[in-house]
């Protein structure tokens, strides 16, 4: 995912902005890492360049 995408994403639960953590990049974009919601104390995974913003209960 491109860095610019972070600006349009918010937590699907509380709607607060997300913070990029543990990012691993290739020459073009972020490949893996987490988007952290400090308010919910939840990490949304970035895997293979795709941020997973499904609510936590849909991933269980």
């Amino acid at each position: 995912m491109k860095d610019s995408l972070i600006e349009i994403l918010v937590c699907p639960v509380c709607h607060e902005p997300l913070e990029l953590k543990d990012a691993r990049r290739d020459e073009k974009e972020i490949i893996s890492g987490f988007l952290r919601c400090e308010k919910c104390n939840h990490d949304y995974q970035i895997a293979d360049g795709i941020p997973n913003l499904l609510p936590p209960d849909m991933n269980n």
Binding site: M1, L5, L9, P12, L53, L54
Partner: peptide, 9 residues
């Protein structure tokens, strides 16, 4: 540019 999510959430 892809986002894994549902418009509902």
């Amino acid at each position: 540019l892809t986002i894994n999510g549902r418009i509902e959430d």
